[in-house]
Nucleic acid binder design. Sequence first.
DNA 1: CCTCACCTACCTGTAGATCGGTAGGTGACG
DNA 2: CGTCACCTACCGATCTACAGGTAGGTGAGG
Lengths: 191, 191
Amino acid sequence: MVRARSEERRADILRAALEVIAERGYRGATLGSVAERVGLTQQGLLHYYPTKEALLVAVLEERDRWDTSGGRDREGWRLDLLESLVEYNAMRAGIVQTFSALLGESVTDGHPAREFFTERYAQVRANMADVLRLEFGERLPGGLTPERAAPLLTAVMDGLQYQWLLDPAAVDMPGAFRDFLRLLHGSGGRG
Amino acid sequence: MVRARSEERRADILRAALEVIAERGYRGATLGSVAERVGLTQQGLLHYYPTKEALLVAVLEERDRWDTSGGRDREGWRLDLLESLVEYNAMRAGIVQTFSALLGESVTDGHPAREFFTERYAQVRANMADVLRLEFGERLPGGLTPERAAPLLTAVMDGLQYQWLLDPAAVDMPGAFRDFLRLLHGSGGRG
DNA sequence: CCTCACCTACCTGTAGATCGGTAGGTGACG
DNA sequence: CGTCACCTACCGATCTACAGGTAGGTGAGG
């Protein structure tokens, strides 16, 4: 089973790449350091992924596969599943850090992950709108529509991640996210 | 007026550094490209800022000066001033991009801007809490306190910036921010 | 004439990538 | 069943390109 061995290697490499990118970002990551983690030389790594960018693409594709296999765009999430996702993320700083670092880099000119994130966020917003519609129908507090609230929901998740990564002790990410959901439910009204 | 000339140069360099960091992030930025933009050689630049990190520090310090001169922590903002800030940012993609890129990088291990952002966000949250307290008193919709809502307000601003930078046409940043404020005001209730 | 503002020349390190190999396996065929 | 062609999975050496930083100037102005 040469094939299987090869696939396993590739998976190992992707895992290592995830780690290294989390630690140093894509630009700061080196092929050598990824290779070292899998017990290969840089040249050995290039046998599997011919360029650094190809490796990044593979990482992003795996992310996509992971997201969608979680059921994200098959039949969509529900709000309480989003809550669980945030809780899950709070235990997986590594992955969060990888993609937060990549998102940050991706806004720079000509970054290889830029297109990926642009498309991804369009999709995520559409998804969030569905989730919100499922939960609230057409009308949300503040006179918002699901489409108008979707970018906010997305923004809160991302923004909280940065604050949490910078200072995990100072920010209760899942708690804050629940707070936001409470805000959406409009429960309690005012003072 | 040699002094003045020198200060002017430094200001030019900082401006150029802002630009280059926006385009390529800190790690991707090179001293040479910053220098070129001011009409200097790389070594000429090093005359003013002896290391790359010193240049970054200067950039961050200038940001701090800019923020605080705007009145941020002197006597604090009010919510409607935050709204104007977001509108202002929407016309200054360059600066937003610079600091979004830096924020993203800063979550990676040992990044020179990490401490800056960590402290900064603690301060920003405290500030936001003040703003919210001024506007709402102790009780916000959803039973939130100003302290609990502050990370959310912060997260929304940052998160929207990323979405907007990735696809300005798809996200109306100031509009979305106003939506969030409406949510905070709890106006409209449900249905 | 001395100091500030720069430049030329240069060093060292490192990154991504290419080239040319080698060792081990696999499959076809006489 | 053996051997020859060929493939996979690598490694060592090496190339090219910068990058950041140092050392030692030069020239203009005060």
